[in-house]
Amino acid sequence: MKDREMWVAGVDGCRAGWIAVLLRIGDWNSARIMIAPTLDRIVDVPEAPAIIAVDMPIGLPDTIEGSGRVPDKLIRPLLGQRQSSVFAIPSRQAVHAFDYGEACRLSLATSNPPRKVSRQGFAIFPKIREVDALLRSRPGLMNRVYEVHPELAFWALNGAHALHEPKKVKGTPYPPGMELRRRLLLKAGLPDELVHRPAPRGAASDDLLDALAGLTVALDMARGGGQCFPDPPGRDAHGLPVAIWTLRSSS
């Protein structure tokens, strides 16, 4: 497939389900933003993106050593003051618990040292389970769907330097931090109209920003770039990759 015929997508979770920015490589006029209740609706759009960079953990180990999965531990030190945005994802058993108390009990039993589950982490378990079920039922998607983390993408866009401004403060978008990330997206070549477009109904402004960060990773990967942590990716017991991808650093 020629580059100009290839579509890519950056995806983030949002209130309405998922927000995606789709783009045909080389044609910024083709960019469109969509909201979907489930991830498979994005995977199965007519454009059939060849690379889908999603801000959601993929690959769930049966046991956890230390402060999370291997990729979580590898990228956290790179992010400086932003490292708290990398949640410590627990074991597969804990993620598949529907009750918070049960998730904590299972996490304690499958981690060394024993760790409970954070409330913030527990809140995204339904979406982690959704991605997990989709990839396990359709293993061919493992060649298209990749885990990313927005702050790691911005780290790479910032020349392999952590960002000092937070994106949100006390749950509210922080204008200086949002503008810093928009400037990095513009520097990466994204058009102003796309970077400053209002988020559609069902998504917040930071959700769209994170989807755009994922789009930069998808673009770089589609062009033969990308880097992952760890390299090569690990695998969980179901063969799912355990790695976080970002674009090649501009440093």
Rank of each mutant, 00 (worst) to 15 (best):
V8L: 08
D12T: 06
C14Q: 00
A16R: 07
G17T: 13
I19R: 00
A20F: 04
A20S: 10
V21M: 14
L23V: 08
R24C: 06
D27L: 07
A31L: 05
A36V: 11
D40I: 14
V43E: 06
P49E: 05
A53Y: 05
D55K: 09
L60S: 05
E65G: 14
G66E: 01
D72P: 05
I75T: 01
A97I: 07
L108C: 12
A109E: 14
N112F: 09
P113G: 02
R115Q: 14
K116N: 12
R119Q: 08
G121N: 07
I124S: 00
I124G: 06
F125C: 00
I128Y: 15
I128L: 04
I128A: 03
V131E: 05
L135R: 01
R136L: 09
G140Y: 08
V145T: 00
E147H: 09
V148F: 10
P150C: 06
E151Q: 10
E151K: 08
P166Q: 08
E179Q: 14
L180P: 02
L180K: 13
K187C: 03
A188N: 03
A188L: 00
A188H: 04
G189V: 05
L194W: 08
A204W: 13
A213C: 09
A213K: 00
L215W: 03
T216I: 07
V217E: 09
V217W: 04
M221V: 15
A222G: 03
Q227P: 01
Q227S: 14
P230R: 12
H238D: 14
G239M: 01
V242Q: 15
S250M: 08
